[in-house]
Protein backbone atom coordinates (compact mmCIF):
# COMPACT_ATOMS: atom_id res chain seq x y z
CA UNK A 1 0.00 0.00 0.00
CA UNK A 2 1.15 3.57 -0.58
CA UNK A 3 3.37 2.62 -3.53
CA UNK A 4 4.25 5.64 -5.65
CA UNK A 5 3.05 5.93 -9.25
CA UNK A 6 6.63 5.60 -10.37
CA UNK A 7 7.24 2.33 -8.54
CA UNK A 8 3.96 0.85 -9.83
CA UNK A 9 4.89 1.78 -13.41
CA UNK A 10 8.45 0.52 -13.06
CA UNK A 11 7.11 -2.85 -11.92
CA UNK A 12 4.44 -2.91 -14.64
CA UNK A 13 7.06 -2.32 -17.35
CA UNK A 14 9.92 -4.40 -15.95
CA UNK A 15 10.90 -7.28 -18.29
CA UNK A 16 11.19 -9.73 -15.39
CA UNK A 17 7.58 -9.15 -14.29
CA UNK A 18 5.94 -10.50 -17.46
CA UNK A 19 3.58 -12.95 -15.69
CA UNK A 20 2.21 -10.77 -12.93
CA UNK A 21 2.35 -7.43 -14.79
CA UNK A 22 -1.43 -7.11 -14.83
CA UNK A 23 -1.48 -6.78 -11.03
CA UNK A 24 0.96 -3.87 -11.31
CA UNK A 25 -0.96 -2.28 -14.19
CA UNK A 26 -4.16 -2.22 -12.13
CA UNK A 27 -2.18 -0.99 -9.12
CA UNK A 28 -0.92 1.91 -11.27
CA UNK A 29 -4.48 2.78 -12.36
CA UNK A 30 -5.79 2.60 -8.78
CA UNK A 31 -3.00 4.88 -7.57
CA UNK A 32 -3.83 7.41 -10.32
CA UNK A 33 -7.43 7.50 -9.12
CA UNK A 34 -6.29 8.11 -5.53
CA UNK A 35 -4.04 11.09 -6.28
CA UNK A 36 -5.29 14.64 -7.01
CA UNK A 37 -2.66 15.07 -9.72
CA UNK A 38 -2.59 11.37 -10.60
CA UNK A 39 -3.27 11.75 -14.33
CA UNK A 40 -0.79 14.60 -14.84
CA UNK A 41 2.01 12.68 -13.09
CA UNK A 42 1.12 9.36 -14.73
CA UNK A 43 1.16 10.81 -18.25
CA UNK A 44 4.65 12.26 -17.74
CA UNK A 45 5.90 8.89 -16.45
CA UNK A 46 4.26 7.04 -19.35
CA UNK A 47 5.86 9.35 -21.93
CA UNK A 48 9.30 8.58 -20.50
CA UNK A 49 8.61 4.83 -20.80
CA UNK A 50 7.13 5.15 -24.30
CA UNK A 51 10.40 6.82 -25.36
CA UNK A 52 12.41 3.86 -23.97
CA UNK A 53 13.42 0.68 -25.72
CA UNK A 54 10.87 -1.55 -27.42
CA UNK A 55 9.67 -3.87 -24.64
CA UNK A 56 9.21 -1.11 -22.08
CA UNK A 57 7.51 1.09 -24.70
CA UNK A 58 5.05 -1.64 -25.72
CA UNK A 59 4.30 -2.43 -22.08
CA UNK A 60 3.81 1.29 -21.31
CA UNK A 61 1.31 1.50 -24.19
CA UNK A 62 -0.57 -1.46 -22.68
CA UNK A 63 -0.61 0.40 -19.35
CA UNK A 64 -1.86 3.50 -21.17
CA UNK A 65 -4.73 1.49 -22.67
CA UNK A 66 -5.66 0.23 -19.20
CA UNK A 67 -5.61 3.78 -17.84
CA UNK A 68 -7.93 4.95 -20.63
CA UNK A 69 -10.40 2.28 -19.49
CA UNK A 70 -9.98 2.63 -15.71
CA UNK A 71 -9.07 6.24 -14.91
CA UNK A 72 -11.98 8.13 -16.43
CA UNK A 73 -12.47 11.70 -17.63
CA UNK A 74 -9.58 13.17 -15.61
CA UNK A 75 -7.16 10.91 -17.47
CA UNK A 76 -8.79 11.45 -20.88
CA UNK A 77 -8.34 15.23 -20.38
CA UNK A 78 -4.57 14.76 -20.04
CA UNK A 79 -4.34 12.53 -23.14
CA UNK A 80 -6.33 15.00 -25.26
CA UNK A 81 -3.61 17.67 -24.99
CA UNK A 82 -0.96 18.43 -27.61
CA UNK A 83 1.55 18.37 -24.73
CA UNK A 84 1.02 14.57 -24.65
CA UNK A 85 -0.02 13.91 -28.26
CA UNK A 86 3.18 15.62 -29.51
CA UNK A 87 5.19 13.01 -27.58
CA UNK A 88 3.47 10.24 -29.54
CA UNK A 89 4.04 12.09 -32.83
CA UNK A 90 7.75 12.34 -31.97
CA UNK A 91 7.95 8.55 -31.65
CA UNK A 92 6.22 7.86 -34.97
CA UNK A 93 7.48 10.69 -37.20
CA UNK A 94 10.85 10.28 -38.97
CA UNK A 95 11.34 14.01 -38.42
CA UNK A 96 11.96 13.13 -34.74
CA UNK A 97 12.50 9.62 -33.37
CA UNK A 98 10.57 7.59 -35.97
CA UNK A 99 13.57 6.15 -37.83
CA UNK A 100 15.06 4.60 -34.70
CA UNK A 101 11.81 3.14 -33.32
CA UNK A 102 10.49 -0.35 -34.10
CA UNK A 103 7.51 -0.74 -36.41
CA UNK A 104 5.67 -2.60 -33.65
CA UNK A 105 5.75 0.40 -31.32
CA UNK A 106 4.84 2.87 -34.05
CA UNK A 107 1.94 0.77 -35.32
CA UNK A 108 0.55 0.33 -31.79
CA UNK A 109 0.62 4.10 -31.27
CA UNK A 110 -1.15 4.72 -34.58
CA UNK A 111 -3.80 2.10 -33.76
CA UNK A 112 -4.37 3.63 -30.32
CA UNK A 113 -4.62 7.15 -31.73
CA UNK A 114 -7.16 5.95 -34.29
CA UNK A 115 -9.20 4.16 -31.58
CA UNK A 116 -9.29 7.41 -29.58
CA UNK A 117 -10.58 9.39 -32.61
CA UNK A 118 -13.48 6.91 -32.69
CA UNK A 119 -14.04 6.76 -28.92
CA UNK A 120 -13.75 10.55 -28.44
CA UNK A 121 -15.12 12.10 -31.67
CA UNK A 122 -15.45 15.57 -30.08
CA UNK A 123 -11.81 15.70 -28.92
CA UNK A 124 -10.48 17.83 -31.80
CA UNK A 125 -6.85 17.69 -30.65
CA UNK A 126 -6.76 13.89 -30.89
CA UNK A 127 -8.16 14.07 -34.42
CA UNK A 128 -5.59 16.78 -35.30
CA UNK A 129 -2.71 14.61 -34.10
CA UNK A 130 -3.98 11.64 -36.09
CA UNK A 131 -4.40 13.79 -39.22
CA UNK A 132 -0.83 15.08 -38.83
CA UNK A 133 0.46 11.51 -39.04
CA UNK A 134 -1.90 10.69 -41.90
CA UNK A 135 -0.72 13.75 -43.90
CA UNK A 136 2.86 12.54 -43.49
CA UNK A 137 1.87 9.18 -44.96
CA UNK A 138 2.62 7.41 -41.70
CA UNK A 139 -0.79 5.76 -41.40
CA UNK A 140 -1.21 2.54 -43.36
CA UNK A 141 -5.05 2.31 -43.47
Amino acid sequence: EGESLESWLNKATHPTNRQEDWEYIIGFCDQINKELEGPQIAVRLLVHKIHSQEWEALQALTVLEACMKNCGRRFHNEIARYRFLNELIKVVSPKYMGDSVSEKVKNKIIEMLYSWTVAFPNEAKIADAYQTLKRQGLVMS
Binding site: Q40, Y82, I89, S93, Y96, T132
Partner: peptide
Protein backbone atom coordinates in the same frame (compact mmCIF):
# COMPACT_ATOMS: atom_id res chain seq x y z
CA UNK B 1 -14.59 18.45 -5.09
CA UNK B 2 -11.60 20.64 -5.74
CA UNK B 3 -10.75 20.07 -9.39
CA UNK B 4 -7.50 21.70 -10.32
CA UNK B 5 -7.92 22.13 -14.08
CA UNK B 6 -4.97 23.51 -15.92
CA UNK B 7 -5.90 24.28 -19.56
CA UNK B 8 -2.43 25.34 -20.68
CA UNK B 9 -1.12 23.41 -23.68
CA UNK B 10 1.51 23.43 -26.43
CA UNK B 11 1.05 23.85 -30.19
CA UNK B 12 0.65 20.72 -32.30
CA UNK B 13 3.93 19.48 -33.81
CA UNK B 14 3.88 19.52 -37.60
Amino acid sequence: NYDFHDDSDEDLLE
